[in-house]
C-alpha cells in the first residue's frame, strides 16, 4: 500500500470553549492545503460541522439508525467547504437514552463499513463533547482510533480545570495503549497574562501549547454567515493563525502522557494566580480612579 497513513485526531475541551469552531477551522485549513479530511462530530447537538456547510445541520448517523435497522454509512457523509467530509454522530434528546452508547454505535458503524480507508482520508478529526463523562465519550481516544488528542482551553480556571480532568482521562487510556496528548490549543488568548497562566499550566502538567488563538470578531462574523474564518476571511490575521495551527497539527508526530495536577495542587495553583489577578485588577482600578 503506497498511500499515506491516515492520521486520526481527537479534540476535547470544556463545553462552549470553542471546540467546534477551532476544529472546523483546522479542517478547512487542511482541505485548503490539499488534504482529504473528515470532521466527525461526537456530540448529540450535532452542530460540529455547521460552519463547514453554510450553517446547515446534516442528518446524523444516529438519526439514520433511529429510522432504519440497516444503515449505509455513506448516507451519513456530507461534503462541505473545499470537499471536506462532514459526519455528525448525533445522539438522543437531552435527558433520555444514552449518548455515550450513541458515540460507540456511530463510530463502530463507520469503522465497520471501512469508510476511512475507502475515502482514502489523510485526517479524521473527532470533535468530542465537553467532558469524558462515561466510557462512550472515551471511544475516540481508545486504542485503534485517534492517536493524538488535543485539548482546547482558555485561560479561565473552569476551562483549565476541565483540561486537567481530561488529562486524567487521557492518562488512564494512554497507559492502556490509547491516544496520547499532543498539547493544548489555547483559545481566546488576548493578553500576555492569559498566555502566562496557560504557559505555567502546561509546564506543570508536562505538555505544550500548540497555538495561541486570540478571541476575534472575525470568527463571530464568519459564524454569523455560517462559515469558518478560513472560508469567510481567508486573508485575515485570524485565518493565518488557524492555518498555522492546522499545519502544526499536521506536522505533529510525538505525543506524550500528561501529568495532571492533583485536586489540591490545582486548587493552590489557581489560588496563586488568582492573587496575582486581583493585584492586577486593583492596580487597573487604581489607575482608573486616578485618571
Amino acid at each position: 500500500m503506497a498511500k499515506s497513513k491516515l492520521k486520526q485526531i481527537a479534540i476535547y475541551g470544556k463545553g462552549g470553549i470553542g471546540k467546534s469552531t477551532t476544529t472546523s477551522n483546522i479542517s478547512a485549513a487542511l482541505v485548503d492545503a490539499g488534504y482529504k479530511v473528515m470532521q466527525f462530530g461526537c456530540d448529540p447537538k450535532s452542530d460540529s460541522t455547521n460552519t463547514l456547510r453554510g450553517g446547515d445541520y446534516i442528518p446524523s448517523v444516529l438519526d439514520l439508525l433511529h429510522e432504519n435497522s440497516r444503515v449505509d454509512a455513506h448516507d451519513a457523509i456530507f461534503r462541505g467547504f473545499g470537499g471536506v467530509y462532514c459526519v455528525e454522530a448525533g445522539g438522543p434528546q437531552p435527558g433520555v437514552g444514552c449518548a455515550g452508547r450513541g458515540i460507540i454505535a456511530a463510530v463502530q458503524l463507520l469503522k465497520q463499513q471501512d469508510i476511512f480507508d475507502e475515502l482514502d482520508l489523510d485526517y479524521v478529526i473527532f470533535d468530542v463533547l465537553g467532558d469524558v463523562v462515561c466510557g462512550g465519550f472515551a471511544v475516540p481516544i481508545r486504542e485503534g482510533i485517534a492517536e493524538h488528542v488535543f485539548t482546547i482551553s482558555s485561560a479561565d480556571f473552569m476551562a483549565i480545570y476541565a483540561a486537567n480532568n481530561l488529562f486524567r482521562g487521557i492518562q488512564t487510556y494512554s497507559n492502556k495503549g490509547g491516544a496520547l496528548l499532543g498539547g493544548v490549543i489555547a483559545n481566546s488568548i488576548n493578553t500576555d497574562f492569559q498566555r502566562e497562566i496557560l504557559d505555567d499550566f502546561v509546564a506543570r502538567t508536562r505538555t505544550q501549547v500548540v497555538e495561541y488563538v486570540p478571541r476575534s470578531l472575525t470568527v463571530t462574523q464568519a459564524e454569523l454567515q455560517g462559515k469558518t474564518t478560513i472560508e469567510a476571511a481567508p486573508r485575515s490575521e485570524q485565518a493565518r493563525i488557524y492555518r498555522r495551527l492546522a499545519q502544526r497539527i499536521a506536522e505533529h508526530t510525538e505525543s506524550t502522557v500528561p501529568a495532571p495536577l492533583s485536586p489540591q495542587d490545582l486548587r493552590s495553583w489557581s489560588a496563586g494566580w488568582a492573587d496575582q489577578l486581583i493585584e492586577i485588577e486593583r492596580k487597573s482600578q487604581h489607575l482608573a480612579v486616578a485618571s
Partner: peptide, 14 residues
C-alpha cells in the same frame, strides 16, 4: 459492558 463502554479490547491486549 457495552452500554457503559468498558474498554474490553484494551484490557484483553494488556
Amino acid at each position: 459492558s457495552g452500554i457503559i463502554g468498558d474498554d474490553v479490547d484494551g484490557a484483553a491486549q494488556r
